[in-house]
Design a protein around this nucleic acid. Structure first.
Lengths: 332, 332
DNA sequence: GTGAAAGCGCTAACAC
DNA sequence: GTGTTAGCGCTTTCAC
């Protein structure tokens, strides 16, 4: 491997000069610079980022801890984060938390060991007592995404309550009185807030929440399918269904179809989260679309600000959803 | 920041002993180990991975260069790769090549600078003359995925030719004679091989390829939608359509629906790549499903073998697709 | 405008 | 079973 010393020798300068031409950190005589650049070219020199990071104390690396399994938005989120980071000269290390604190700690521990300059975490349930304090203790800038947890750091999460409320109210407005809900993984704020939105819509109309109509889909396609199948097999089944995230929507749709029921004729349907194919589906899905792209970009923005030394009060950003009124609800 | 020296001092041992208990690299007296562990616990010591990497000459890091834009499988691929790597104690750095050599070089250059122990690349068109040689020159283990390029290194790619041929033949078997094809990004092997499969199916039946029925979808949803729209607006439109990847399938379906045409009644349809919702769609999509999961896992397997010093001849793995016979083709 | 030298925090001979 | 020591390849004061 060729080092900076090799380049320096060939160019007839000191290593520090090579370093400075590489980094533009001080004025270098044009002729000297040229000699250095020629030498670099000649030996095909490539700087060692590890040594650089050790000496400089910064790695220009950011870690992302997320659960791929329960987050079908994984792709677009990672994509948005990667792009924003890359534009700022950082690289992204991804780790899968499996939505479980033990693996989350393994992931974030490994990121911390690697001296990431900052971290973006979609916290698993229980994370506020384990992983998160561990991170903040190191002083590593941290921003939470997807789910909010109160640990006094920046976070950017989707609008949950109002969106779920709107979805439910829409069904209520169409005359439905028995509206079932498929709810996500227990213990995470998005599940809680969306479910609260559902409840608020009902009470706003003087309807009490019927526990029999509350299904725990655990943010899983399979679980949702099983549970919805059971519920809809009942003679006394609901006339409308709200699914609170994309994975469960697929399960719900499978169950409904498996039963030979038709949407919206036999059961009206609205869902939180949109799909690329929502418009292609028959019937087209009425949905609250989350803006993952923005969530990723904003998270990076906040993080970079912290990395660059900003220490204002923690910011809490809510990214609004878009209501796509199509016809699975029974309209149009 | 607390260092190994601090821990050593507190435990009353040398730094090297601390290093050895941390890494299990030599026998340490049980009592000594306990003292060290207590000291580590006491100060909340966490090893500095950067220093470690510099001294050890390995980073336990692998880079992945891929195009998220044209690869809707991004999520599952990254997920599979991350999991396999994580199981082996490695972390993953992802970079987006945008399917364009310039950004690809930026990405891989940055990965090389960071001294990744190995690299997985889904090469952009033209990569064999730029990026790839640059990587191999550094001696960094490299495995290609998704598209094969002949640079003498390991690769794992999907079955393309036979799958596309099967799809086309199926349509031909159903009596179609005017079968159009929506073809991917020019210059990459998957596009070429799949298109060859289409051509082979036709010639096998004595049909010559009609250039008017060959659409360039450029692996893009929008382009495919526009082009299919144009083609299908024609009075003399084809009676069947084959789309050669998932992004273009969505565009194709949008175009067909936009024209008020029905599948398979007005036009029969088969596609390369499957979706989670293929079974939910009306009609259910007949498709050749790629096994991205396996591609990712195999790629990591090959890479780790190289990283661990194996230098056998380059391996070329083809991962078979699964033919899902549903009813967009006109059957059932 | 340029160089010398002291680290950054760790690993791994090597010696005992 | 443990300590000493010499780097790993770079950045960055400090001096000239």
């Amino acid at each position: 491997m060729t080092t900076m010393g090799d380049v320096a020798r060939i160019a007839g300068v000191s290593a520090s000069t090579v370093s400075h031409v590489l980094n533009g950190t001080r004025n270098v005589n044009a002729a000297t610079r040229l000699r250095v650049e020629a030498a670099i070219e000649e030996v095909g020199y490539r700087r060692n980022g590890v040594a650089r990071s050790l000496a400089a104390g910064r790695t220009h690396t950011v870690g992302l801890s997320i659960s791929a399994l329960t987050n079908p938005y994984f792709g677009s989120l990672v994509h948005a984060v990667e792009r924003a980071l890359s534009d700022a000269g950082y690289v992204l290390i991804v780790g899968d938390s499996h939505d479980e604190v033990t693996s989350e700690q393994r992931v974030t521990g490994s990121l911390l060991d690697r001296q990431v300059d900052g971290m973006i975490v979609a916290p698993a349930a229980g994370s506020e007592h384990t992983t998160l304090p561990e991170i903040t203790r190191t002083g590593t800038p941290l921003v939470l995404i997807d789910r909010g947890v109160d640990v006094g750091c920046d976070r950017v999460v989707p609008e949950n309550f109002a969106s779920a409320k709107t979805l439910t109210e829409h069904l209520l407005d169409l005359g439905h009185r028995r509206v079932a809900v498929v709810r996500g993984l227990a213990g995470i704020t998005s599940t809680i807030e969306r479910f609260d939105g559902y409840c608020a819509a009902l009470s706003g109309r003087g309807i009490t929440v019927d526990p029999a109509l509350v299904i725990d889909g655990e943010s899983s396609t399979d679980v949702a399918e099983r549970q919805v199948h059971a519920l809809m097999s009942d003679a006394d089944r609901p006339t409308a269904l709200v699914s609170l995230n994309n994975a469960m929507t697929i399960g719900t749709l499978k169950a409904v179809r498996g039963l030979g029921l038709s949407i919206p004729h036999d059961v009206a349907f609205c869902c939180y989260d949109d799909f690329e194919w929502s418009d292609l589906f028959e019937p087209r899905l009425t949905a609250a679309a989350q803006d993952v792209e923005t969530i990723g970009v904003k998270a990076v923005e906040l993080l970079l600000r912290r990395i660059h030394g900003d220490d204002d009060a923690a910011q809490h950003i809510r990214v609004p959803t878009t209501f796509h009124h199509r016809n699975s609800c029974g309209c149009g």
